[in-house]
Amino acid sequence: MAARAPNGAKKFRAFMNSVPVSVALYLLVIGMIIWSAYSGAQSMGYNWQWYRMPQYFYTLTDDGFQWGEIMIGLVKTIQLSVTAFFFATVLGLLVALLRLSGLVIGTAVAVAFLEFVRNMPILVLLYLFYYVLGPVFKLDRYTASVMCLAVFHAALISEIFRAGINAVPKGQWEGATSIGMSKGQAYRYIVLPQSVKFMLPPMTGEVVHLIKSSAIVSVIAVAELTTIGRNLISDTYMSFEIWFTIAAVYMVVTLALSIGVSRLEKKYAVQT
């Protein structure tokens, strides 16, 4: 028995991993999820109206081709995310360099910023920017959103920079110093280019995270994807169709990004 049991387990695993069984099981699981959602909706008398969805992506009328509201919202989400990511990266690099400066005051400022942001819910941070700093500095809702997202993610990005910079061996600094480079030159020509490969994977995760957390600005009614979804539902009451669709749009964008960057990583991995 003792000798046969592992053999039986091996056979069972081989059977489960064979293509027809795997595909059948996979379809069964997905089918059950869809069926339970569908039957749940049926039992509450939900009226599915998928046929009404395409117009929110685009319309083709006598006036010609027009993007629908979901696409406009998506563009706004991407615009918001890209802008926020740009400022988050600049601020994050600054905070990381402060932290690594070796100056007591620099480290103190960086750590204070980091702890302040990391220990606060992003929703509270958004309210701070919009309801407190907004009136004081005359920020509109879009600017407040960009600043909130940039500050929140700058804290996380600064840690990615710090880890990436620290991952470059100390000997590289010594090599750069010994040929007379200043600290700035050593960073720019020697250390930062080498830390890119350490930073790329977590940085991608951070962009995905930022795109997802950009949905939070719907609470102050910035017209991005999630807000569009809410508005469409209050017009049409098609909450199931619209939330499924919005979720799918976010997934398409973030998955495309992850796949694109992992291709990029492979390409760079070959070079060095």
């Binding site: 000997g171 090599g175 750069a176 010994s178 040929i179 007379g180 060095t272």
Partner: peptide, 20 residues
Amino acid sequence: LRRLRQEVGMVFQQFNLFPH
């Protein structure tokens, strides 16, 4: 100091070449 380092070359045990 930086002028000095340009006049003084240093060869390390671990080479410390720039791999990129």
